[in-house]
Amino acid sequence: MAENDFVVGIAEIKTATDPGRLAAYGLGSCVAVTLYDRVKKIGGLAHIMLPSSRMHSQVSVPGKYADTAMIALFAGMKKEGADFTSVEAKLVGGANMFVSIAQQAVPIGMRNASAIREILREKGIRIKGEEVGGSQGRTMFFSLSDGKVEIRKLNQPNLVI
């Protein structure tokens, strides 16, 4: 952990400007989505648990659901002064770690990723990179100086997207 690292926990959303990194540890079926304004070096990260808030009567934590989290993330980026014409997105996580949960038609991790992709498409934001699915957990660090995302997995070399 470097001095300017901020950890974004489950269902949390954080926006910040260069320098520093935003980190999400131990993503299982959660998906972390990063937004980055490459020109102004403004970044945001949402650590999303579930695809939709529509089945839930009370939404006390907007960061839990893709639909409400993305609205909050867009608002946060706007507040930092991001220009959405130069914002790009990356997706990390959405693993399916236990076979017994996989008996659902589409695993929750993949449904999380699909929901986020759809919202990004509607907003006209390009997806620059993805490291989604599989059966392994991930830890990620998102650099606010260049938008690169470093990913760690158990017994695998680190990846950068």
Partner: peptide
């Protein structure tokens, strides 16, 4: 039915919290 995962403690917990839909 049991299933087995070998991974980071937090990633396992993250998956289970999603399954329970609770933070």
């Amino acid at each position: 039915v049991p299933s087995l995962a070998i991974d980071m403690a937090q990633a396992i917990l993250d998956t289970v919290l999603v399954e329970l839909e609770q933070r």
